[in-house]
Design a protein around this nucleic acid. Structure first.
Length: 224
DNA sequence: TCATTAAATTGTT
DNA sequence: AACAATTTAATGA
């Protein structure tokens, strides 16, 4: 994807809008480039945007009291997130960090609320997305206790391929093993080891600078 | 188009 | 954490 307009074209909720509505939404959006390792937004900051990822890869994470980083989710290109905090007008509850150089689109609260008030498909989209995320977090609580890094990597990746949350992600994804490590909370070396285990089990194929998922089901239930 | 070089990524210690 | 091997991307003939 190259621009805000491309992102809108690829977003399901935007498909039902008229050309005029779409143009207005687009004109009200702000595009921002975030360098690798840069922050899209910090925990505790006031939230006044719904954020869409035009291109790149983000992670939502937080620091535990002991200073350990805990990743909640990876956000690939084509996805939207942050509706929870926009809806509740609360400060952001996690850090948003770009794992690689990324381009994001910021939708102002005004636009967001207008869509919320006027578009049924938009509401349906949000409802579905919130529901999918709930399922994701329940799964997170489960596997947070299992310490097997292979399983953590498997489930982190499986979450990235969720077709409802991330419709733009095909079976093949460009992601380095270092990024997988950052997402899963394991070292790059361990991520490499885990990927080889998963490849041997036929769940995915390891490629240069990316992976192809062969058995999404199996990845999601790995380790249980 | 091909060869060379630099940069990124992977596999191993 | 450091190293070597491998792949890709960029450059220029």
């Amino acid at each position: 994807m190259r621009s805000c307009a491309d992102l809108l074209r690829a977003s399901i909720w935007a498909k039902s809008l008229t050309g005029a509505e779409l143009r207005q939404v687009e004109s009200e959006m702000i595009e921002r480039v975030v360098p690798a390792g840069g922050f899209v937004s910090h925990k505790g900051e006031p939230v006044d945007h719904w954020i869409g990822v035009i291109d790149g890869l983000l992670k939502l994470s937080s620091m535990s009291s002991e200073g350990k980083a805990v990743t909640f989710a990876g956000i690939p290109g084509g996805a939207w997130f942050g509706e929870g905090s926009v809806l509740k007008s609360e400060p952001r509850r996690y850090d948003v960090v770009a794992l690689r150089e990324s381009r994001v689109a910021l939708m102002t609260r005004a636009t967001f609320t207008r869509l919320l008030d006027s578009s049924i498909p938009f509401n349906r989209f949000l409802l579905n997305q919130l529901n999918e995320r709930l399922a994701h977090f329940i799964a997170l609580v489960e596997y947070d206790r299992m310490l097997d890094p292979d399983a953590r990597v498997a489930r982190c990746l499986a979450a990235l391929f969720n077709p409802y949350l991330y419709p733009g992600v095909g079976p093949q994804l460009q992601i380095s093993q270092e990024e997988i490590g950052l997402l899963s909370g394991v070292s790059r070396q361990r991520a490499n080891q885990a990927l080889q285990v998963l490849e041997k089990k036929g769940l995915l194929r390891v490629e240069y600078g990316g992976i192809t998922v062969l058995d999404l089901e199996g990845m999601g239930r790995y380790g249980s």
